[in-house]
Write a protein that binds this DNA or RNA. Structure first.
Lengths: 245, 245
DNA sequence: CGAAGGATTGATTAGTCTCAACGCAAGTGG
DNA sequence: CCACTTGCGTTGAGACTAATCAATCCTTCG
């Protein structure tokens, strides 16, 4: 299944030069147990015992926490090719949920299979650690984004990061890419109100930096947007091409 | 060196029942290359190539990012027994810094030694993954804290978490523990201003929940503070005793 | 004793939230 | 094929949280 190969094995391979044999192992693991789910549904809910690692093949997934007072925080976005936490098995239960933003096609890899995969080659094991470190690195950047930047900067940063990640996966075309986020999603990801997100997006649009309409993101001024969001991609630790400038 | 044992090996051991032999390995790794550093100095700076894993033996360390506009975000706090990221070696360079808040005694474990340790026993490897997952879990909670809670709740949550972690390590006495954070540190950790932190602490104190004076934290109303901060320790995935109530 | 860092206070302003309404487009059922 | 529904985006007015600026106080320490 070339699709699974392209999106799961390749990001790992690009960093670590996995051997053809390694790639085959990864590819197989990611094509064994493919599932589909509709939009706005939980793949895993808080409290569930973690029983498998998920690999997103198609569509977007949000990692989020729901608070008792009704508010929710989106913690991260999983785009095609992303993996939910490696080795979650060592935890007793999920402290957050994974929910689809779109219809999603994904793979589940069980504990035994995952551990076999991780142990099958030192390079694969290392690649999985790398993915995990990049994930925590992104999480730290989000903490910083919400803690230190104002609405305008936050949203600019989020959109920059999103476009950048899509583009590294080969999912961008020119200055545009899919982006199924609603303004409410953006609000939940940035710690703002939907109303304020709306006004801020208008502001960004008015400044000629980005447009976000009909589930598509178009970056009209890449340099400007990066500057506005104080975005510097080093925290993504990419073995990757620079953004189209 | 029983101290290193107690603070580094034991947290791992408590979760995974490391064998005596495993403990010895961990203990040895953590006592080989001990260093000291004064307060308010960087152990590692952004941009440095990561060459070792650090284990905090004594004192507090903050993981932080410095922004160009002068603001800084404290990303997490390392208390005695904590490790900086396992396997950082797979990254090209640090995207944040580690700075001491107090005089700190710590250990550096180089790449070869660390990898040997991780591979020396499946239980140790698993324990290191567990630590890493707990760390990312805490980071997610911080994102949520800053994104969704107001100043009063944020600070209550931070102090709850801090006390809880200290107490799990055996570093609390009754309802008090050391806490070298200045109000400016708390501000940088919660995305607030020092001035507002000051007023909010007065508020918390006035409500009889906590006191923070002379580098000591005293929780005067544990239940109340947990409620105020919406604190529930499940995200710490503790194999641990409940907080003194 | 003087210096310096940290804590505290006051007055003012800015950024963001809240509440409430309305618009628009796509999908659905009669 | 049209009327209704529903989800999402947009707008306005007013309230409030937290930021800013600036000064003073307290404590610790050399």
């Amino acid at each position: 299944m070339p699709f699974a190969h392209c999106l799961f094995a390749e990001p790992l391979a690009s960093y670590l030069e996995l051997s053809a044999a390694d790639c085959k192992l990864v590819e197989e693991a990611a094509s064994r147990n493919v599932k589909m789910i509709g939009p706005r549904r939980d793949l895993v809910s808080e409290g569930d015992p973690p029983d498998s690692v998920k690999v997103v093949l198609e569509g977007w997934v949000a990692r989020y926490k729901q608070l008792r007072n009704g508010r929710r925080q989106i913690l991260s976005l999983l785009i095609p090719g992303d993996i939910s936490d490696s080795n979650v098995f060592v935890l007793d239960k999920m402290d957050h949920s994974l929910g689809s933003l779109t219809p999603v096609r994904y793979t589940e890899i069980g504990q035994a299979e995952f551990e076999a995969l991780a142990a099958s080659s030192p390079r694969i094991g290392k690649a999985l650690w790398w993915r995990e470190l990049v994930e925590i690195s992104i999480q730290r950047e989000w903490t910083t984004n919400i803690g230190q930047r104002n609405a305008y900067e936050r949203i600019a940063h989020l959109l920059c990061e999103t476009y950048w990640r899509m583009q590294v996966r080969g999912l961008a075309h020119g200055n545009t890419c899919d982006c199924p986020l609603t303004q409410t999603d953006i609000a939940d990801a940035t710690g703002l109100t939907p109303v304020h997100v709306n006004r801020t997006l208008q502001h960004l649009r008015g400044d000629g930096l980005v447009e976000l309409r009909a589930k598509r993101l178009r970056i009209t001024d890449p340099k400007g947007l990066q500057a506005a969001g104080m975005f510097s991609p080093s925290y993504l630790h990419p073995a990757a091409p620079p953004v189209a400038a």
